[in-house]
Simulated scan of single mutants.
Amino acid sequence: MKTALALAERGLGRVAPNPAVGCVIVREEEAGFRIVGRGWTQPGGRPHAETAALRHAGALAKGATAYVSLEPCSHQGKTGPCAGALIEAGIARVVGTIADPNPEVAGRGFAMLQAKGVDVTENVCAADAYYLNEGFFLTMSERRPMVTLKIASSLDGRTATHEGHSQWITGEAARSRGHLLRATHDAIMVGSATAIVDDPELTCRLPGLEARSPVRIVADGRLRLPLTSRLVRDAKKTPVWILTLPGGDARRREAFEGCGVTLIDVEPGEDGVMNMRTAMEAIAARGVTRVLVEGGARLAASLIREVLVDRIEWFQAPKVIGGDGYPAVAALGIKKAGDAPAFMLRGTAVAGGDTIASFVRGS
């Protein structure tokens, strides 16, 4: 199953709105167990992992065991159900993780297999399977994508000096890891201030992964982003969406759309600014399951305040900038330490001279 999960991971950032699934087909032979088929969800979501693995295994699938990182689908979509394909191929046993949260499946895939005499084992590596496809699960349960907040800061949590200088706080190895994060998400998001000051490209520039650049999203309620920015100039090549308040200047909206930018109207909350939960629901409705947020401090604070941040990837350079530098997260208005949003450490890594700490939202 660990192999199936590793195969599934290859699809992250490329298969939305579908889940990223892996499948391994194993036969027991005189010399021992042998993998005869491997597959994972292909770009765009088709073909599914089981179909790819069965194609790889061919006739050797008959009587074999299939390890699948998510319940095989049971409904007729653009292709036939994967549960039916496994049955037709003569698979004797299916080892699965957790049920597909899609209401059209939700246990029916496992039931279909069992009804045809296939031995089914469930809940193997279930926690790992949920973590891998958390974005897909959240779109089903909360109608929003999974949000990863990526922060690059000094040891004291500063992202820039008091004069606004931020290039480069972390080193080249850490920046490469940041680009890999981009490749595994469906969209990358920044606030308008970050987009204006840094004029970023927000693309994946790792050699060989350039085509995996995600949709670029800017939270810009007042359409302040210059039409001459890199994001706007490149919008027809790599998609750019701007989240904005409805009723903005008609000529400016027309100019953005003429440049290939997609404008998404987001109703304001009681404070008059964009409601970020509504914004995330609008993003999910367009097929995005995983969003990487890279800045700035006010956007990060807004998402944390609304309990929308599911993971934090904190890149720290061994430097101290001081209290007059720009903070990674703007004010949250917390009065007691016990009221602060809690995150749990999942793991750490070293990238050159920098460290990366991975956190998940606490319960």
Rank of each mutant, 00 (worst) to 15 (best):
A6W: 01
A8E: 05
L12Y: 04
L12K: 06
R14S: 10
A16I: 02
A20Q: 05
G32S: 12
G37M: 11
R38C: 13
G39W: 02
P43M: 02
A59V: 12
S69R: 08
S69V: 10
L70H: 09
K78N: 14
T79V: 14
A83E: 07
A92L: 05
R93D: 01
T97W: 02
A99H: 06
P101A: 03
G109S: 10
G117A: 12
G117E: 09
T121A: 09
E122Q: 11
N123F: 10
A127P: 01
A129Q: 04
Y131A: 12
F136T: 04
V147L: 15
S153H: 09
H162M: 14
E163C: 10
W168P: 13
R177Y: 11
L180Y: 13
L180M: 14
A183W: 05
S192Q: 07
L202P: 09
G208S: 11
A211R: 13
R216V: 06
P226Q: 11
S229G: 12
S229K: 08
V232H: 09
V232N: 14
K236P: 06
V240C: 09
L245D: 05
R253G: 03
T262V: 08
I264P: 01
N275P: 02
M276E: 00
A279V: 00
R286N: 04
L292C: 14
G296F: 03
R305W: 07
Q316M: 04
I334W: 06
K335S: 14
D339Q: 13
P341D: 06
R346L: 15
R346P: 02
A351G: 05
A351M: 12
G362T: 03
G362W: 09
